[in-house]
């Protein structure tokens, strides 16, 4: 049974039939909203009779600006961070292609000097999308590589500099400190316009902890929610929006060059409720 038919009366405003609130909560938990937020939504719907379910979910979205912040002077520097395997390099590849298609000159920087072949992976993407790639040696100081990348971006008058960083689990304080340092070093050269946290759409409640820790380390300005092409619904990102106010800015939907799109609230909520 589709969610829509199950909770038909919740999709319209006004009078509603008897709703199985437990069932609703469970459905939302199934979308990775987490027990607390699911209960909050259900209570809200229970109290505000003229609210529809999509409205109640939309209320949780952050009011923050979702378009990319662009630097007024010099290249727009975007730092891309996240846990291992969330899709940072792939997202940078796709994002650089997106920006290049809009006629922007883009420079990507491979500051993941830790994982085997991470640099080559980004170089392959850069070749594919026709953007310039700056890379350091394996094991080089990532902050130095990022600094060099931004310097070259300034010299080459690039519109965008996208910096790829090594994946790190947010519980590793040393690695999080390293990230703070990367940002600090970059900012000796140019301000960072955006720090995008790449979040795997299938991540559960740990997503909140990721967003909190990365925000504490490098002040995350937005999310790239990836891998939404499977059976996942990405509800953990809504929990981040609701609690931290960090907006989802991009949605990744596959491994192809074109599989990235700016966040669309309606489409996202539809995906959350898809079954």
């Amino acid at each position: 049974m589709s969610l829509f038919s199950k909770f038909t009366s919740l999709f319209t405003r006004g009078e509603r039939a008897v709703v199985d609130w437990n069932d609703l909560e469970q459905t939302l938990i199934g979308a990775d909203l987490g027990p607390a937020l699911a209960q909050r939504v259900s209570t809200r719907l229970h109290d505000a009779r003229d609210l529809s379910l999509p409205d109640a979910l939309a209320e949780l979205l952050s009011p923050a600006e979702r378009s990319l912040q662009v630097a007024t002077d010099g290249p727009t520097v975007i730092l891309v961070v996240g846990v291992n395997g969330s899709g940072k390099t792939t997202s940078i590849g796709k994002l650089s292609a997106y920006l290049a298609r809009q006629g922007k000159s883009v420079l990507v920087v491979a500051a993941d000097t830790f994982r085997a072949a991470a640099r080559e992976q980004l170089q392959t993407w850069a070749q594919r999308t026709g953007v310039t790639c700056i890379a350091g040696r394996d094991g080089a100081d990532p902050a130095a590589v990022a600094f060099d990348g931004v310097s070259q971006g300034i010299d080459q008058r690039a519109d965008f500099v996208l910096i790829d960083t090594a994946g790190r689990l947010q519980s590793k304080e040393g690695l999080m400190d390293q990230l703070t340092k990367i940002r600090r070093v970059i900012e000796k050269k140019a301000p960072v316009s955006e720090v995008l946290l790449v979040l795997d759409g299938s991540t559960g409640q740990n997503a909140l902890s990721q967003a909190e820790s990365f925000t504490a380390a490098v002040d995350v300005t937005g999310l790239i929610l990836t891998k939404l092409d499977g059976s996942t619904r990405g509800g953990a990102a809504l929990a981040i929006e609701a609690t931290l106010g960090t907006p989802i800015k991009w949605i990744g939907t596959g491994e192809g060059v074109g599989d990235i799109a700016p966040f669309d609230p309606d489409a996202y909520i539809a995906q959350l409720l898809a079954q």
């Binding site: 938990i29 199934g30 979308a31 990775d32 846990v83 395997g85 795997d200 299938s202 991540t203 559960g204 409640q205 740990n206 997503a207 499977g230 059976s231 996942t232 619904r233 509800g235 953990a236």
Partner: peptide, 15 residues
């Protein structure tokens, strides 16, 4: 399977 996986772990494992 990633230890951070949410509710979808079940669908993926089944698939």
């Amino acid at each position: 399977v990633d230890a951070m996986t949410g509710q979808d772990a079940v669908n993926t494992a089944n698939a």
